[in-house]
Amino acid sequence: MSVTRPTANVTAALDKRPVMLASHNVWKVYGRGAEEVMAAGGGKPSAADLSAAGLIGAVRDASVEVKEGEIFIIMGLSGSGKSTLLRCMARLIEPTAGEVMFEGRNLLEATERELIEIRRHRMGMVFQHFALLPHLTVLENVAFPLSVQGRPKAEQRKRAQEMVDLVGLKGRENYYPRELSGGQQQRVGIARSLAVEPQIWFLDEPFSALDPLIRREMQQELMRLQNVLHKTIVFITHDFDEAIRLADRIAIMKDGEIIQIGTPEDLVTKPATDYVAEFTRDVQRSKVLSARTLMMPAGADTAAARKVAATAKIASFAADIVAAGRPFAVTDEDGAVIGQVTPAAVINLLAGRESAA
């Protein structure tokens, strides 16, 4: 069954939410003498400076803000720095410079003991490799982080069972990882990371090792869970189709730098650089662009026309509007008509013509 994103105006809704996690001018430079080169470059050495010193700028001057309850995707090709940035934001590795703010506090100033407590109680992590414990059952794997926290056995079992049910594995509590499919194993990993009720959830290419059909199923599962749990999620992928399916906003990285941050629609319609334009070139625009993007002023009979939300993706009503052969009214979040979309505009978009008017 298809799970869709909420139809509220994403940008306006996000603007009102508090920032849960932020990186400010984060650098991760590998090689001897990195701190000295950073200082000599005024805290912002060029790529040429780093190369001349034999250093690798895995992350360079990266600043992002992740709002409460959003799915924020960091994407780029292999070697772009996306996974390194995630690990800096979770402080799994130490940034060379910059700040990482979690709920208003700089994580780089936290002690090792404080970090352990934060990770145990407030952060969830799922990586590409499931890392399930092979000698433990599904239920025991899910309960494992709770046992590390020292929670009572009965509480562990109750919470683990709730998570197993949530991810659709009821009836497989006593299976071992070897008895599960890849998608089922990934569900166990997701359930385990959710067991501690994290405030922020880090997902580093969690579905990239799965077959395409299972991967699509897991993407739908993630959206179902998000519609229920409303977690703050930082998600890493190199797949733009996956990103546009899941993201509230996307940051595109190249050579350690963040090139552009925006909604999927922003990146497709207003690419900041040729690189972003090339990155998004083959995207099915009807799956990304909304009715608001194609709409024109309402006609005299628009009020009586079929209505679609301004945030509705063109693909969701393209067949209907072409079959109807007449404009659809576009409405805002309050149901007021703010314009219309014509069949010609939709047909031009589907045909890949420059003008959708």
Rank of each mutant, 00 (worst) to 15 (best):
Y275E: 05
V276Y: 02
V276D: 04
V276C: 00
A277N: 11
A277E: 06
A277R: 15
A277Q: 12
A277S: 00
E278S: 14
E278I: 07
E278F: 08
F279T: 13
F279W: 01
T280K: 04
T280E: 09
R281P: 04
R281Q: 06
D282W: 15
D282S: 14
V283D: 08
V283C: 13
V283K: 12
V283I: 09
V283H: 03
Q284N: 15
R285L: 07
R285H: 06
S286F: 09
S286Y: 09
S286A: 15
S286L: 13
S286W: 08
V288D: 11
V288A: 03
V288P: 04
L289S: 11
S290R: 11
S290N: 05
A291C: 02
R292M: 05
R292S: 02
T293Q: 08
L294V: 01
L294P: 00
M295T: 02
M296V: 15
M296F: 04
M296P: 14
M296A: 12
A298C: 07
A298G: 04
G299D: 12
A300K: 12
A300D: 14
D301W: 04
T302R: 07
A303L: 06
A304D: 09
A305T: 00
A305Y: 07
A305S: 11
R306G: 15
K307P: 07
V308G: 00
V308S: 01
V308W: 01
A309F: 12
A309N: 09
A309L: 14
A309V: 11
A310Y: 03
A310K: 02
A310E: 05
A310W: 00
A310V: 01
A312L: 02
A312D: 13
A312S: 11
